[in-house]
Every structure is written in C-alpha cells, then in structure tokens.
Design a protein around this nucleic acid. Sequence first.
DNA 1: CTATTATGGATATTGCAGGTCCATAAAGAT
DNA 2: ATCTTTATGGACCTGCAATATCCATAATAG
Lengths: 157, 157
Amino acid sequence: MQFSKSTGHALHAVIHLARAERGQHVGIKELAALLGVSESYLSKIMSKLRQDGIVRAMTGASGGYELAKSANLITFLDVIQVVEGRQKMYECFNLDSQQHQLFFESEEQASQHTGHHEGNGCLVKKVMDGAEQQMVHYLQQHTIQGVLDSAAATSTK
Amino acid sequence: MQFSKSTGHALHAVIHLARAERGQHVGIKELAALLGVSESYLSKIMSKLRQDGIVRAMTGASGGYELAKSANLITFLDVIQVVEGRQKMYECFNLDSQQHQLFFESEEQASQHTGHHEGNGCLVKKVMDGAEQQMVHYLQQHTIQGVLDSAAATSTK
DNA sequence: CTATTATGGATATTGCAGGTCCATAAAGAT
DNA sequence: ATCTTTATGGACCTGCAATATCCATAATAG
C-alpha cells in the first residue's frame, strides 16, 4: 500500500516546471539531474504526463517540457492518477462467497418484491470506498500552485 | 496503489468471526471455504492477526479462531495495518535533490538564527501525508461492529 | 544539414504479493 | 497413551508489475 516512486518523481517534476518561467522549456536532462533519476526513466513518466494533458513537450533544440495549463488548475490527484491509474484501491474478490449471502439473506426475500437489490454490494467495499474518497477529495483540493505558495510562505516566515 | 488481496481476506475473515457466537471457535477450513481461498494461505493471514492481538487461536480438535476483543473495538485500520504494515504511503526519494534546496534556500538563511529548520521536510510529502491522514482517520472511525450493524439495517429495510 | 531533444518499442532486472508444502506443536477425544 | 484435529512457522515457488536501460526514429531550431 504505497505510492510508486514514479508518482513522487512526477509530482516533483511538475512542481519544477511550475517554477520555471512561463513559455520556457525545461529539458529532460535538467529534470533528471534535479530529481536524481535517469533521463530514460523519467522520460517515460513525462510522456505519460503529456498524454494526459498535464504538460506539453517540444522536440528539437531548445525543446523540452512546460506545463500545459496553469499550476492552480493541476491538482495532486491529476498527477497521481497519471502514474497510478484510476482503478479503485479496493476490489472485493469474495463476490460469490457465502459471506455475502449471509449479509443479504434477508434482503434476498425483500428483493422478491422490488425485483432488484436495494443495498447491493459488499459492505467491506463500501467502507473502503468511503476511505478512498476521503483521500481523493483531499488530493483534489491541493494544487501544484498550492505547494509553490506554501514554499514561499515558509521561506519568508 | 491498491490494497492487497490479503487485506480483503483479513477483513472478511474478521467479520465472519464477529458473526460467530461468543466463545465459539471457527476453523481455518470453514473460513477458507467461505472466502474461497486456500487454507494454507489464509492461515498465514490469520497468524498475523493473532500476533497483533486481533484474534485468538486454539489448536487441537474443536480449536480454531475467535476474536480477541469486542467487534466494536476492532477498527478497519487495525485489521488493515496487520496486513499492509505501518509504513507511510509516500516517502520522498529526492531528499538531496536541488528541488528541495530551491524550496528552502531562503529558509536556509533564516535558520542561521534558530539553528534548525522551521518548516523542514519535503512539501510534496506534507501534502501526501495529509491525504493519508484523511483516509486513516476514516478507517479508524469504522469498526467491524459497524459493518454488522449496517448489514442488519440493510436486511430489515 | 546538423545538433538537439522527445518518443516509443523492446528488453532486462528485481522485489514482492500471492500461493503451496511440510514438519512440528498443541490440545481434545478415545 | 496415542490418535486425530488443528494451528504454526519455515522454506520454497511463481508470476507480475515497478523499475530501469538502450536504441532507432521523428521532430525542430539554428
């Protein structure tokens, strides 16, 4: 249950791009040196960020990366989902188990009337989804610009 | 970024034990069949749950598992941490990177006075830790008993 | 044209979750 | 006593995904 290293690299890379002057391109060489990772590996991550519309890329001399949109429109969640994907953090693999039948045995009868299950689904999953939602909401409220502001506040304190 | 299958099995197993009569032991055979996993694999998980004081185990004929404490004292977090461990979900691997020095270069000077860094640490990690805390808090507030109550409410609805 | 830079495919490497097997110990049943 | 039942823990296997590298190619500036 850990975020991948790639997620950390992606976040740090995007933050660095946000610090660069608008319109200025930052090369993979510079980024890789900054983060302390290989250029080839980081370029894969940057490529994903580009495909998902987080950054823009320019080939050729004096090319490189820049943010595709304003830093206050890029949330932590946006960047994280590029690397981690968008699957739920918990999936119930006991769907056909007796466990669930026990949970809903009374409801089975009730659904004879309505023709469908009212509270259908795994109760464990309900809680886990709720927990995930708490985290997702927090990550959605924190933007890259927020980190820059926070850094500025810390520096001048 | 997913909870392991083992975590799901642990949660379902504990819930089943909570449904059993107090003082009654449930064997690994029954649990494994219920969850649809092998006995040998599930026994590893149960063993961990025992070591962490979530369940008790009895060897010998008519042995098996039972909860070590009341179901309303066992939170989702308790069970999850048994399987997933207690490490943080995010660790910054760019500790020595230029990135951080940029963030705190002004603070470096400030800390000449106090002798230590006030806002020491990676700002990315601060956000990630905050996000984790949201989820942890939620999981800490949801108990095994809560699921049983919720199941009862659904059944009689 | 040439130098520079990103891209994407192919290909290791590696760590770990997932899973099995077995020898051992403990406890009840006969 | 010993037999059966049950949990325990060590050793081991396996597949896959995260990590990581290399290279041929394309695009662009000068």
